[in-house]
Nucleic acid binder design. Structure first.
Lengths: 212, 212
DNA sequence: CCCATTGAAAGACAAGCTGTCTCGCGAAAT
DNA sequence: ATTTCGCGAGACAGCTTGTCTTTCAATGGG
């Protein structure tokens, strides 16, 4: 009875399909937070199947979080980080980051509401952001562009690149995605960078006209 | 049968007591978000009594929110707002605001987690903050202290004085309440105020040493 | 002192949710 | 042909919110 090994490609493939169907069903119901039952019904799948595939309600949201991370829109962010000029890095990263938030907003709001059930998963994701910010702060420091200590720069960047800051401007103040990006960028530049040199003046200008 | 008017002071008084017992029972269980049943048991009260007094789970959290607002710690904030010097107003308001968040943190985290059920109640509370910020921005503008348009200043202040910004620094970056206040203040001053004049330099200094 | 009034307990009930488990079909792999 | 295994179907336990009815006991007007 416990003998034959199987390697069922087709079966695994269709399993992947049901997995996708379930996740897509979740996206469909956002930003309202659906019950496991509602997701299963929308996906045309038995509720027990959802538990079979994702383990629990929390597992379902965890998978959604990973899915969002993989789906990218991160290309722009990566490009900005790779730029040789640290100022372009700063500007491009904040802009790309904010636009990602703008696009994924429904998912992120739902995930935040479910934050209690997710615990570690969210932290793990945020860890990547922290690493990126430390890198950015180091680069700015190396080029002697910082007007504040490096760790303060990391703190401020952390606050400004979080989803909550974006959401406060977007929903709380009714700004567009690009207007929110402009406020965040202006705040970062004026707070972190040395002097309102010709460089600084230009930045301020460029962020102002987007927001106009 | 429908005749006599009653004016039962003692009864009304004991009703107020049960009301308080229930709210206190909630405070006891924070920051974990308790079920109505758990609150009732902790308060030594029937679950149906909670519904009798507060109407619903949402009503319970709504009452908690009002209770927090009334409990104050707002004296410092009011004093800062009344100061004739708009710069003192700015600094005092951010500091007092942040300290209030620090003190009420457990409640605010719980309320945020329950935000979906509260809807309007939170907005109403935030409305007051917005009004205060507009006033502050106007004062700064009148004294010609702003380096950015007034509406931009309101947006930035809104973002920096929200609970989320505080929480990002406090929990996300592990800062103390005063260190968080220093970051917020430095960000606000450098972003909003004209030139790093002698005035500006002094501010930067004072906020730096708190954070050290 | 009597008893209408009313705050509050007790608890039944409906409905929705998560999570677990069992049973059985039918398609895929060997 | 026979073994696996993905998945649907559904029962079950337990927790939750919310509603409603019944009962108890104190309060206070007359």
């Amino acid at each position: 009875m416990t003998s034959r090994r199987y390697e069922q490609r087709l079966r695994a493939q269709s399993a992947e399909q049901t997995r996708r169907r379930i996740l897509d069903a979740m996206y469909d119901q956002l930003p309202k937070i659906p019950s496991v039952d509602a997701v299963a019904r929308q996906a045309g799948v038995a509720r027990s199947t959802v538990y079979l595939v994702f383990g629990s309600r929390a597992g379902l949201f965890d998978a959604l979080l990973r899915d969002v991370s993989e789906r990218g829109g991160f290309a722009d962010l990566v490009r900005a980080v790779r730029d040789p000029d640290p100022l372009t890095h700063l500007r491009g990263a904040i802009l790309a980051n904010t636009r990602i938030y703008g696009r994924q907003r429904d998912v992120l709001v739902a995930l935040r509401a479910e934050a209690a059930a997710l615990e570690g998963a969210l932290e793990r994701t945020e860890q990547g952001r922290l690493g990126g910010l430390e890198h950015l702060a180091s680069r700015l420091a190396e080029h002697d562009l910082l007007a504040v200590p490096k760790d303060v720069a990391v703190d401020v960047l952390w606050m400004l690149t979080g989803f909550e800051a974006f959401e406060a401007l977007r929903t709380g103040r009714g700004l567009s995605v690009d207007a929110a990006a402009a406020r965040l960028l202006a705040t970062a530049e004026r707070t972190l960078l040395r002097v309102p040199s010709p460089e600084g003046a230009r930045n301020e200008q460029s962020s102002r006209d987007v927001s106009a």
